[in-house]
């Protein structure tokens, strides 16, 4: 009998699940050990985190409010990943979306639904605008989108700082409170979460049940095959990147109009970067964005709870970074299969 390891070109779902459970266990153990090292009783800390996050209204509201933008930025990154594009600029698109919708909100003379719809369109336009330059550079000059989208994030931050200290200045480093509000569902949770879920369901349906979605998958699977059957990959690239930017911009609009109601430099809170983590966790399926966004929202919520216990909130970055690294490793390892081959008996 001979045993060796074989690499499969597509990782089986069961392997992936197994490895991911293993990853989550490792991270949980590391967290517990860290808390223990810092003098907390791990069990009581865990109990406290769970009971505040899920047992209190403020905790649940916090998680749902985090899920809303995370779903959209996650969907933006996941859509881009379909064509092997890393949309590193969800943060910048988020900021521009929030800026544009704030501007509309402040300059809209009439109130009500129309104004909210206009603000939403402005948010989407902001996001699209912010991904336009990287898209064109990618299509016409082949410039790597990872860097261009990322640099635009920093520029977007500076634009927001300029606006809140100049044209849109209200009180200290924030714009005035905008007069439009999204309708509330429960406590502070607004209908943004329904919009986000709707977007995710639509994307899931389009990508699995329509011709367009199929062609998109062909483009992602093999550029040459797409070319051979007469699909223009660049056209898909263009549309996909713009939609991706628009989704991030919409997330920014929901954050401003629904949650924060004013523009501030720190409005994005890294939700754009976390979109990448959410989309990696979702592993190429739009519906699984929901659990992965919930997980990241829980981690974010936990970081604030830890901060109230005087633990450093940089631990969120460590946990998400570690999660990303281990998931990347796990997804690769899931390709390997351990097989046994029995040598043929020689016929006599």
């Amino acid at each position: 009998m001979q045993t060796y390891i074989r690499r499969l070109s597509i990782a089986p779902l069961s392997f992936v699940t197994l490895y991911r459970i293993f990853v989550f266990t490792i991270i949980l153990l590391l967290c517990v050990l860290t808390a223990w090292g810092y003098g907390f009783h791990p069990l009581s800390l865990t109990y406290m985190i769970l009971s505040v996050s899920f047992g209190t209204r403020v905790g649940l509201e916090g998680i749902l409010l985090y899920v809303t933008p995370l779903l959209l930025t996650g969907a933006a990154c996941l859509l881009a990943f379909r064509l092997w594009i890393v949309n590193n600029g969800a943060e910048g698109q988020f900021l521009l979306g929030s800026l544009m919708s704030t501007w509309v909100g402040l300059h809209c003379n009439f109130s009500g639904w129309l104004c909210i719809v206009l603000a939403g369109l402005a948010g989407i336009a902001g996001g699209v605008l912010w991904i336009l330059v990287p898209t064109l550079a990618k299509i016409y000059a082949g410039v790597n989108e990872i860097l261009t989208t990322l640099m635009l994030n920093f520029i977007a931050t500076f634009i927001i700082i300029y606006c809140v200290t100049g044209p849109l200045a209200g009180s200290f480093t924030s714009s005035p409170i905008i007069p439009i509000h999204l309708p509330l569902l429960w406590g502070n949770v607004h209908i943004g979460i329904l919009i986000a879920l709707f977007c995710v369901f639509i994307l899931a349906w389009v990508s699995t049940h329509t011709k367009w979605g199929y062609e998109l998958r062909v483009c992602g699977a093999s550029t040459q095959a797409a070319h051979y059957i007469g699909l223009s990959v660049n056209q898909y690239l263009f549309i996909i990147m713009l939609i991706s930017g628009g989704l991030s911009g919409l997330a920014g609009m929901l954050e401003v109009v629904g949650t924060v109601h004013r523009l501030q430099p720190g409005i994005s809170n890294g939700l754009g970067y976390l979109g990448i983590v959410v989309s990696i966790l979702a592993r190429n399926s739009f519906l699984s964005l929901i659990p992965s966004a919930l997980l990241i929202a829980f981690i974010l919520n936990t970081s604030i709870i830890l901060q109230t216990q005087q633990l450093n909130n940089a631990i969120t970055l460590i946990i998400t970074g570690l999660l990303l690294l281990l998931i990347a490793i796990a997804d690769e390892l899931a390709h390997y299969q351990y097989i046994k081959i029995y040598p043929k008996q020689k016929e006599i």
């Binding site: 590193n88 970067y273 969120t316 970055l317 970074g321 990303l324």
Partner: peptide, 11 residues
């Protein structure tokens, strides 16, 4: 891996 190292390093 690179993006994860960025987050991890800063964190």
């Amino acid at each position: 891996c690179g993006l994860a190292f960025t987050m991890l390093g800063i964190g």
